[in-house]
Amino acid sequence: MAMERRRGVTWRSFRTATWLGWQIESNWADPFVFAIYSLVKPLSGALILVFMYAVIAKDGLGSPLFPGVFVGNALFIYVPAVLAGISWTIMDDREHYGMLKYVYAAPVNVLAYLIGRGVAKALVATVAVVLTLLLGTLALGVPIRFAAIDWPLVAAALVLGSAMLALFGILLGAVTMVTARHNYGVGEAVAGGLYLLCGVVFPLDTLPPWLAAVGRALPITYWLEAFRRALLGQSAASFAGLSDVALVGIIAGSSVVLAALATVCFRLAERRARAKGLLDMQTMY
């Protein structure tokens, strides 16, 4: 009975939040704004990268590193979208919409709610990811051949990866929850750091050893690697010894660890927020 009720709450929270998130994110009412934020921004990120390669790298776009970097960069669009997105959701709901307290006073599973909002953000990001990949394939010679794509690996990476990113987001959300004053920067800053550390633009073996070690400890690195293999059939030199199964195992395992960590941290943050009266905090400035 209690169990069933809890499951009902979780599913409703997730479903409703996804619907809400989609309404907010897609904002089709204003296609121009939508296009700017959801497509042009990530696409221009890819173009900057292309430009960098064309100018700096020895072989320009013909560099053997380019396809891997391009794919990593395209998939990385998900990272700020979901990870920063979830902590933004807390700020937005609390301070901008003034709804967080009503969400809390309702029978809502807040973790499921946040994940739902993250899924909506991921859906919108998917549009940008696909467009970027198409651009790479059709115009820049990134060798993705539709017939050769390893779909099971794509599916595994997508499912596990979204869970992992959402959990990362919740971990950050826990910080946001107890941070006073507007703090939209946390998510963005973390995403920026991950961009450098997870082998997106600089393959890990080009980083100083201690930075490379940090990168190796981050599941996002393996997640990007899984996509490189699935889409390009090639892998970064530093992971050549790792089988696909091991790769997926690492992502799954770290997601489990993250889940435990995120849940605990978020519960602690909630308790602290309730103690300090932060659930309905309004920043005055």
Binding site: L20, Q23, M99, Y102
Partner: peptide, 9 residues
């Protein structure tokens, strides 16, 4: 005295 609500909805 509150103005809460999701503006886009």
């Amino acid at each position: 005295g509150e103005t809460s609500g999701y503006g886009l909805l």
